[in-house]
Design a protein around this nucleic acid. Sequence first.
DNA 1: TATTCTAACTAACAAGTGTTAGTTAGCAGC
DNA 2: GCTGCTAACTAACACTTGTTAGTTAGAATA
Lengths: 190, 190
Amino acid sequence: MNTEGTRRDEIIHTATKLFKEKGYSAVTMRDLATAMGMKAASLYNHINSKQEILKAIIISLAEEFTQGMDAIKKSDQTAIEKLNLIVELHVDITTKNPYGMASLNNDWMHLEAQLDYYLGLRERYEQDFVAIIKNGISSNEIVDTNPEVVMFSILSTLRSLYLWIPKKEEINPKALAQNLSDVLIYGINK
Amino acid sequence: MNTEGTRRDEIIHTATKLFKEKGYSAVTMRDLATAMGMKAASLYNHINSKQEILKAIIISLAEEFTQGMDAIKKSDQTAIEKLNLIVELHVDITTKNPYGMASLNNDWMHLEAQLDYYLGLRERYEQDFVAIIKNGISSNEIVDTNPEVVMFSILSTLRSLYLWIPKKEEINPKALAQNLSDVLIYGINK
DNA sequence: TATTCTAACTAACAAGTGTTAGTTAGCAGC
DNA sequence: GCTGCTAACTAACACTTGTTAGTTAGAATA
C-alpha cells in the first residue's frame, strides 16, 4: 500500500527542482511529466493535483522551522546562543532541501487551502524570533537598535541561503553556520 | 506623440503591482486589463507584449544598479564608506520602486531576449561588490573572513528590502540606510 | 490459472492563455 | 465638416492548461 511511496516522492522531488528554476506557475504538468519520463496523465496515478505537490513541498518545510524554533525558544540559552542555533537551523534545513526552500520563499502565495495555515506559522516564527532579539537587548547582550531591523537583516540572509548553498558544496554546514553567525552577529568591521 | 507616455506607464505601473503579488507567470493579461478597467485586447494599443512589460520593469532597475555601482567604484572612498554607499543605493532604489524590485528578484528568469544581458549586469555587479570587500580586507578595514560570505550576507538583506520597506513608511530612507549599515557592518553584539 | 495491483498509456475536455483583426466613439487641427 | 489620432471595444484565433475516463501490459498474489 505504497508504504515507502517512492514514485510519489520522486515526482515531488522532480517538481521541487522545476519549481525552483521557473516558479510554480510557470511549470506545467507536462513539463513535470517530461522530466519524469512519462505522460502528464500518468502523474495522476500518484498525486491528486498540482496544488497538492506545492503543499507537500512547502508545509513540511514550514513545520520543520516551527519545530526547530519551538525547541530553541524553550532551551536554556543566552540570546546570542539562541541566534546561533537559529542560524544552524536554517543552514541545516536548507542544506537538506535547497530547492524546496525556493518554493517556500517564492511560491507560498499559490497555496490555496493551506495559505492561512502557512501564514500563521510564518507569523508565529517571526514573533518568536523578534522576542529573542528583544530579550537580548534587555539582557544587554545585543546592541540597542530597532529589533525588527535586526531580525529582518538576519532573516533575509538566512532565507536567501537556498540561492547560495547549492553553489558551495565544498563548505560543510557546521563551518558555514559558524562563518555566517560570526558575520551576522559580530559584523565585518575590524 | 506620447511624449509623456502616461497610459503605457500606468499599465506598467499596474502590472508591477500585480507581478509583485502573484509573480509574472500567474498574472494574465486579463487580470492586468481588469485592474486597469479595460479589456485585455485594449492593452495592446499601448504595449506590444506581456514580455515587454517585464523587460521594462526589470532592465531599467538593473541598469540603475549598474550605474550606481559604477559611481561608487570610481569614487575615492574607503571600503567601509563604499559599503555604506551601496546600502544607500539599494535603499534609494527600493524606496522609489519596491514592487518592481519583486520582479527583479523573482521574475528575471522569464526575461527571454534580455536574459543574457540581465545576467551579465548581475554578474558584473557582484564582481564589483566582492572586489570592494576584498580591498577592504587587504586594507585592514574589514575582518578577514570569506569575502563571498560577507557579500552574500549583505546583498541578501539588501535584495529583500522590497519585502520590508512598504510596511515601514514611517522610517525615512536616510535613517533606514544608516540603521542597516550599522547592523550589517558593526554587527549586533554589544 | 485466475485475480488484483501497479504504473504506464491514449484520447479527450472545458477553461484559460497571449495575441490579432477589425470596428467605433470622441476629440484636435486643418 | 473632413481628417486623423487616441483609446477603447467585440470577436475570434490557435494553443496550452490541469484534469478525467478508460485502457493495457506486466508483476505479485491467491
